[in-house]
Amino acid sequence: MKPADLAEGTTHGAERGAEEGPRSEARPKRQRVLVALNGTDAAASQAAVAMGRLVARTLHEPLHGIFASEAKVPPGELPRLLGMPKHALDGVVLDVEVGDPVERIMAFTEAHPTAFVIVGAESSERGGLGVGELAGHTIERSHAPVIVVRPEERLALSRILVPLDGTPSTASALEPAGALARQAGASLDIVLVGEAQHGPHVEPGAMGAPQYVDQPHHEWPAFSAEFVHRFAKTIGHCPEDVPTRFFLGAGAPADEILRFAETLAADLTVLVWHGLRREEHGAVFERVLRKATCPVLVLRCP
């Protein structure tokens, strides 16, 4: 399977977007890819649509675009309103609604199985998470996976970076990332960051870098294999046929994740978030989200 990429993509996934025929239990369940169209930031919307097309094509799922405002807007007016070329939204199933954009996005994801919500980061960096209010609030409230993309970012799905903290609870959120990697033919780069002045996690089944490395040429391969098996495969349910590499970082976790993302030329960084911002894990999450130079997939810890 080849990696998914904009340059070589096919379009049948998006064109098959509208569901066909009556609902039937026998039909496979479809999941939607939802792009949040932001009326206040045209570049963010365009980036989200581009990423949405890539993801929908990769998953062979329909691409939906949702736009909500205080006043009703005719769907045909959307490209102009969003500052996009006339045909920029061709192939996107449009949901134009009245109301609060975040509320409508949440209502959509609750009403329809949603593989990913894709939202562009605003240039203003307003909002507490530093990616603009629409993206920030969507991340905070969505239980569906959210991809945040910046306008300037290169879009591809060949290399997916998955930082883990070595706890089963974090790894248990990984399944959508593994499924996306499999569909995209992407490889997974698992990163664990160790640090000083920090004790091991107390969660049962947690695993940090080995405290004892009696012989590095034996210990590191054994540890890497065990870590990937335990967290990516067994708990994270990442498919066996997805190429996976393991890396160990050391130092400030957020900076190390960002460094690995750059060094490994990651196309997507996956962050598992517990939903809290003020504790240590939340601080790492927020910093990576703010500083990432590639799209970020946010998975909520169950």
């Binding site: 070595g166 960051v193 160790g194 640090e195 000083a196 002045q197 920090h198 004790g199 091991p200 940090g208 870098a209 080995p210 405290q211 490395v213 160990l248 050391a250 130092g251």
Partner: peptide, 13 residues
């Protein structure tokens, strides 16, 4: 001791 506790061997840090 200034690096304790740690979640990675000190030579990696």
């Amino acid at each position: 001791a200034a690096y304790s506790p740690r979640t990675v061997p000190i030579d990696v840090l």
